[in-house]
Write a protein that binds this DNA or RNA. Sequence first.
DNA 1: GAATAAAATGCAATCGATTGTAATAAATAA
DNA 2: TTATTTATTACAATCGATTGCATTTTATTC
Lengths: 339, 339
Amino acid sequence: MINKPVTIYDIAKKLNLAPSTISRGLKRHSSVSHRTQERIIKTAEEMGYRANTFAINLRNRKTSTIGIIVPKLNSYFMSQVIAGIEGVVNNAGYTLLISQSLEDVSKEIINVQTMFDNRVAGLLVSLAENTKETSHFNRIQKQGIPVLFFDRTPMGNDLPAITINNESAGYKVTKHLIEQGAKRIVHITGNQLSNVYRERLAGYRRALQEFKLPFDTQNVLINDLSEQAGIDAAHSIIKLMADGVFVANDHCAASCMHELKHSGKKIPEDIVIAGFNNDMISRIVDPALTTVDYPGFQMGELAAKNLLAHIAERIDINLTSNIILKTPLLIRASSVRKI
Amino acid sequence: MINKPVTIYDIAKKLNLAPSTISRGLKRHSSVSHRTQERIIKTAEEMGYRANTFAINLRNRKTSTIGIIVPKLNSYFMSQVIAGIEGVVNNAGYTLLISQSLEDVSKEIINVQTMFDNRVAGLLVSLAENTKETSHFNRIQKQGIPVLFFDRTPMGNDLPAITINNESAGYKVTKHLIEQGAKRIVHITGNQLSNVYRERLAGYRRALQEFKLPFDTQNVLINDLSEQAGIDAAHSIIKLMADGVFVANDHCAASCMHELKHSGKKIPEDIVIAGFNNDMISRIVDPALTTVDYPGFQMGELAAKNLLAHIAERIDINLTSNIILKTPLLIRASSVRKI
DNA sequence: GAATAAAATGCAATCGATTGTAATAAATAA
DNA sequence: TTATTTATTACAATCGATTGCATTTTATTC
């Protein structure tokens, strides 16, 4: 047997009061006598009353929902970010509406509309790799809804974002590999439309230049950074006779290293290798993988806190300067040449 | 400058029509002339009209939102499940409201209320480890909202659920290790309030019994299955002089194996080891980890499809028999003794 | 006890979209 | 041309909670 949800009208009828009194009583408004407040709250409890969020949102013209749009949900890094966001947001009494663009702008555009339709109080976005411009966020921003980008952020315009310094991190990794004696370093990275991968490549180039090593486009392998891509890349690396590899994420780096070992290469003696993210896997592979610490959980928390602050204080989020997280290089066995 | 969202009243005023005509015209209701339909849709587009979801939900007394409650968002397995759910649900025009219980019933209870407050059309749940009974789902179920459990499901009562046969999987793993010559097998597992870990242990015991191996509570290590727990467990395993290890998840198994190797143990010569889940990590560690294939993505898809079918057809979900996914044993180098 | 102040409660409009029914306009038949 | 049917469009109530203002009840003062 299905019974309908209880409304303030049901409570009002039961207590012989006006709905408005119930509404005020439930939130302990001072204009309702204390005795009545207690009666209202008690019977509301008894009847199993739960406020209808839509009615509230409709009337108040705003929600307690935060939207998230990410390229892909199924990655360890992203699950960390989302867990961080959920913790903060939930604590503040907000709920989370989540969607993935599957690395496709057209779906991203639809997702933004859905978020708008649901009148989210704020939006956290990590862009799809083929998102070239961000005009699809214009309408939602014009409504005064703060939009905060993280990780994969828009290029050019200065929209508020939380990122790491990918260029500097790429530089640090490459420099380290060079210092360990690598002369021919292959860089495995992702779609160059994405700021993240473009900047890491830029850092890689800067380090090469600084140490007067030639830059060769052949040494830059662009793929989807998947497990399989790492295996394929390993074979290219051997053909290229490289002695160093800088991979733009740990999963791909781990599978690449695995394949290199199976092909008879010694790590780090023959080839030094480094990844990116400090995923769990980087600590467990053998040898442990040198990587860049990219704290997803903290990034999620920071992004959420920032967004909530803007919602609460009604400060225009576009006035915020970008936030850049520190990303220390974690040197492990995969890149340290025994002397 | 912030401009307010456009409503059907705005469109009505502009076109000198009644709001009801706009409402019908937008969905191409046959009672609105074709010419008017076009005019309405065109100006709606021009004015940037987007329907207010709350008004619709309030009026229709239902939503297009699916709720998810999971113990923890930050695990690779769960991110796979959620990605699977998101794909199906989004395709069907639904949105996803996500929350985590952080393995705590009290938060789970609050999350269920929030889901109810948001009048989700259906709810997908994986229980917190300390959830002993499920009465907090009663109210939402009484409202006719289908609740479907997955992975961590309630014990005892026959609520609809999608699971794997954990007992059988645990049995298969243990049997395999025994067949590889292991005589003293340690089982590392999680909180025994959770069906998942309890049943895997049961399977482990059944296999021991079948092969007339003694069951010793000392050999069952219960912890949080974390990376650190794996390291700690490795030392216990050495003390216990075990020659086989069955770990209830791959992450923990990988870190345990890593530590065992560092302590001088040869895998699989000295100790055979198997994990659970078929996470990416199981394929990359050296030696590759024997494990049970637990397809999170597919489970998510299946759960979502099932739930949507029940919402669409308005069939009482409690009439469904439980769905049990197949979980093949993937035998890899970590458990195969060279002859 | 009447007048006034203060406290408590009620009325009614509002948020934006939906939908049964009434009203009007257009088309057809007589 | 008038009557009748059919195609369009408008009206108004509804979903559930909120809130400014009016009204009623209670407390205080003279």
